[in-house]
Simulated assay, not measured.
Amino acid sequence: MTKYAVFLRGINVGGINLKMADLRTALATLPLTRVKTLLASGNVVCTAEASPTDLKSMVEALLRETFGYEAWVVIMDLPQLENIIDTCPWPADDPATHSYITLSSDPAVLDELARHGGEIAGVELARLSPEALAWPAATGGTLDSPFSKLSARPRYKSTTTTRNLRTLVKCRDTLAL
């Protein structure tokens, strides 16, 4: 069995509201074990015998059928998640700055985001893995940050999602149990 973190894109924002209990109930119909939701922003940890690609397809299809929205997820196994956390150059617990990680199911999309983000004055980026790009934002200024605005464009919606580094740490810690 492989330990996975499943990150849902765009729930509990923009009119797509899911109760975590309903999400857990729906996921219980898939061949997953140890399913747990974390926070109310679409973070799921589980174990499965499926490949990441198969798990992504199963979860997206289930979400579309059950909740009736265009669902996208990014899947990370525990070693990937540990590597991303360990290589992030910014801390998870700085009160003045939040460390964000944009995760993607398509490394070419992160290449594009890194290229365009690198062209914006004052934007700091760090490529952590083929699937992850880190960037800091001042506390309270995340949605106004230039990189947040760039990564929120509709063209990136189906392949990316962003999480605070603290959230990734919580997912890792839960999977490590």
Rank of each mutant, 00 (worst) to 15 (best):
H116P: 14
N164T: 11
L165K: 04
I84K: 06
I85M: 07
E60K: 00
W135R: 09
A134R: 06
R166D: 06
E82Y: 01
S129K: 09
T37N: 01
S158R: 09
L27G: 01
T66M: 09
L27M: 05
I84W: 05
T37W: 00
D22H: 08
L18C: 03
A152G: 12
T102P: 02
L63S: 00
D54E: 15
V123M: 10
K3D: 11
G140A: 03
T33Q: 12
M1N: 15
I120H: 14
L125V: 06
L55E: 01
P52Y: 11
L30S: 07
N83T: 15
T167I: 06
P89D: 04
N17W: 12
N12R: 06
V109K: 02
P95R: 05
A121Y: 07
P89Y: 06
K56W: 12
A132D: 03
T167Y: 03
E82F: 01
I101E: 02
T167V: 04
L30Y: 09
S57D: 14
L63T: 00
H116W: 12
M76D: 13
T66E: 13
T2H: 15
L110I: 07
D106K: 06
A134H: 08
E49D: 15
S57N: 15
L38E: 00
S105F: 09
C46W: 05
L125T: 06
S145N: 10
D173R: 05
A26G: 04
V59M: 04
L8P: 00
Y100Q: 13
S99V: 07
A132P: 04
S99P: 04
R166A: 12
A152S: 13
A132E: 00
A71Y: 00
H98C: 11
S129P: 11
V123K: 07
A137E: 01
A61L: 12
L62A: 03
P136N: 07
E119Q: 15
E82C: 14
E131N: 14
L23I: 04
N164D: 08
V73W: 03
A48D: 11
K149S: 12
W90R: 06
W90Y: 09
G68I: 01
W90Q: 02
T29N: 11
L81W: 01
W72N: 11
N12P: 03
T167K: 11
R64W: 04
I75P: 04
D173A: 08
R34G: 12
L27R: 00
V13H: 02
K157E: 13
E131P: 05
R172T: 08
G118E: 13
P31L: 07
T102G: 03
P52I: 07
Q80G: 08
L81M: 07
K56D: 14
P31E: 03
A92F: 02
E70P: 02
N17T: 15
K56V: 12
V74K: 04
G122R: 10
T162D: 01
P130Y: 09
S57E: 15
T167W: 03
M1C: 14
P31H: 04
R155P: 11
R34V: 11
A134S: 10
L27V: 01
S148I: 09
A108Q: 14
D93L: 01
W72D: 06
N83C: 13
W72S: 05
L150W: 08
D144M: 09
G10C: 04
L110R: 02
P146Q: 14
